[in-house]
Amino acid sequence: MKKNSLLQKLEISKKEFLEISKSIIQPNIISDQKKYKILLKKYVTLEKIVFLYEKYKKRLASLKEVDFILENDSDVEMKELATTEKYKILENLSSIEKESYNLLFSSKKESETEDDRRAVIVELRSGTGGDEACIFVEDILRMYTMYFKKSGWKYKIIHAQKGGIKGYKEIILDINGEKGVYGNLKFESGVHRVQRIPKTESQGRVHTSAITVAVLPKVKDIEVNINLSDIKKDTFRSSGSGGQHVNKTESAVRLTHIPSKITVECQEERSQHKNFEKAISVLRSRIYQNEKEKRLRKISIKRKSLVSTGDRSIKIRTYNYPTNRVTDHRIHKSIYNLAGFMNGNIQEMINLLKFFENK
């Protein structure tokens, strides 16, 4: 989180706190118990935020003093003391930032939209980096499935295309849950970049690879009406799971929507009919998402949204293994616990993205 952006939010909260402080003692507010309780609850939360705001400003002032000593003082012992103090201040600032964010997010959280409550289709595809990109698709798949488990969501693999040596060139998932699945996962759409030493690298050099993630809200047939005459259907032998049966029959399905030129494949089921149904579901979601992205692009011209621009070609995140760091470029936030992140602990980053989208 950028310090300037956080300070602006804290300043706004302080102004709001001062306004509520005046309002809450007015007789007409006190007599309206419903309104009074709402304002009192807000007052208590804002009071905590203002306390952190004052504390934050003092620590920033201390940091400025320490930096001045480091830049201008020639005394070695003073510089050593200043360096030690600076680390303490930075650690304290980080703690205040996290606490401030949690309070701000809880006080400013907006209600879910209809789309936010939807189930989703998630598509992972390897990009630049060859075999290493395919391996990273598998790593991200594992990260998401662990996150789904923590969230109490269920998922099914609709389509999978194996990589050359290991991993996947492409994998499509169907995710369902009681809580807002799309509301959390929509921020994952975009290019995910990995920087690490591949297992196949004998010289120990760090390579950069990339994959793309697309998160599509699931829609009903009444929301997106697909004319069957606009669909070209091809069948082929599956290369996926299912034993010998799938290799002997043309159970896999490829659908092409002629007007939009969108193509969908599904081969995970033994039945051609079931694969067709799943492919239609993915196709419907892609058509819906295409229309939604067109609207978002128009909106983003007027409103410089940090996250939901609808452009899946944007690099959104870097996973840097040598520094144990994952960075989201949209909000300039780094988490120095890559192992934990890859084990499905991604909610902190998602919450930050939600916060910035709603600010």
Rank of each mutant, 00 (worst) to 15 (best):
M349W: 08
R59H: 11
S106A: 15
Y144H: 13
E265T: 07
K98P: 09
K232W: 01
D328Y: 06
N324D: 14
L353Q: 07
S23G: 04
Q244T: 09
S106M: 05
T83Q: 11
G340D: 15
A82P: 01
I316F: 07
A210E: 02
M349F: 05
D328Q: 07
K156A: 10
Y288Q: 06
R303V: 15
L52M: 10
A252H: 00
R142A: 01
K37P: 02
T323N: 13
M143A: 00
G130P: 05
C266V: 07
R270C: 00
H332Y: 12
E348F: 13
K149M: 04
W153N: 12
K359M: 14
R297G: 11
S271Y: 00
S285E: 02
P198R: 03
K37A: 04
K108Y: 11
T263M: 14
S229I: 05
M146E: 13
E277M: 13
V122D: 02
Y147N: 01
D230I: 13
K98H: 13
S100A: 15
P217Q: 06
I69T: 04
Y155P: 12
V213W: 00
G310C: 13
H245M: 08
S100Q: 10
I165R: 11
E223C: 03
Y101K: 03
I12G: 04
E277Q: 15
A279L: 00
A133Y: 04
Q203T: 05
E112N: 14
K57T: 13
E223A: 11
K199S: 13
E114S: 14
E170R: 01
R142F: 03
N227L: 06
E357A: 00
K156S: 14
K186R: 14
I346F: 03
K37L: 12
I262T: 12
F17L: 04
K315E: 11
K86G: 06
Q203M: 10
E97T: 07
M146F: 05
V181A: 15
E132M: 09
I29W: 08
K64A: 15
I175H: 10
S334T: 10
S308T: 04
L46S: 01
D311E: 14
L70R: 02
R59S: 06
T256N: 10
K14N: 09
F148S: 05
N358V: 12
N92I: 02
L6H: 10
Q203V: 00
K15A: 13
E277S: 15
K220M: 10
F341T: 02
S209G: 04
K41E: 15
T200W: 09
Y319E: 09
N358C: 10
I89R: 07
D221E: 15
S334P: 04
V181W: 00
I231R: 09
A133F: 08
F105W: 11
L173G: 06
M146T: 07
V219R: 05
V246P: 05
R325M: 08
K88A: 10
S238V: 01
